[in-house]
Nucleic acid binder design. Structure first.
Lengths: 121, 121
DNA sequence: CGGTATCCATCCCGATACTG
DNA sequence: CAGTATCGGGATGGATACCG
């Protein structure tokens, strides 16, 4: 076997890629980051409406994870009714171009992929 | 609300990003693509060894999905014992740079993220 | 060697109800 | 408005045994 590859992707604990993938390989994280990248700041319910099918629960969970990782910043305005705004941190913004490249690739190639899927295995 | 964002990420069925994310937002797909990107061709058991903790089942399932999407090519050599080789298709190779950028970002920022995670919420 | 088939634990995530 | 708490179904994925 190729020792080089092993070192690069082998170990779950030390491999940054796998560490990151474990985090963003969920249903919503990437999408939330992309939507936040479209605006300076967004309120909770605005996010909820942008990502049509996300549940309130999953939006909360996802935002909390992203906040923990330092990718998203959360600001509470002590109003009644409460107002909470979310925005990308510098770290979050540094990730954004990579995700947007993925978006571009997806848009460019989705037709081909869909065609492939319909072919007989 | 921002209609533009809604159009871009709103609908599950028509949005390519979400379609793609649904596919690669699993535990193994991205990793398998990255490992395949390191070599011209790899046999089943070579892949299995590269990605230490993946089970035989999940490797099979993941490879089949990637093959269906047309990202990976599967070649059977009718030997005894059988020999099967996997390689990226042109489509698969076109995705690779995007994933490698993500790897680079992960390597560059994993320390900061890990530090963030240890901070008190 | 390169799978398949089956069983089973986990946990993701949606629905619903409730709160400050 | 922006959450939290709880429940439960279904998908995810690991372990094991078997097959061509």
């Amino acid at each position: 076997m190729d020792e080089e590859i092993l070192k690069k992707y082998g170990d779950v604990d030390t491999c940054p890629v796998r560490n990151i993938l474990d985090r963003f390989g969920d249903k919503w994280s990437t999408l939330v980051l992309l939507v936040l990248g479209e605006k300076e700041k967004l309120r909770f319910n605005e996010l909820n409406k942008c990502i049509q099918t996300i549940s309130q629960k999953m939006l909360t969970v996802t935002l909390k994870k992203l906040e923990t990782d330092g990718l998203v910043n959360r600001t509470i305005y002590p109003h009644v009714p409460p107002k909470v705004e979310y925005e990308l941190t510098d770290l979050g913004r540094s990730l954004l171009p990579n995700l947007q490249n993925l978006v571009k690739w997806a848009n460019d190639n989705i037709d081909e992929i869909k065609t492939n899927r319909t072919k007989i295995g």
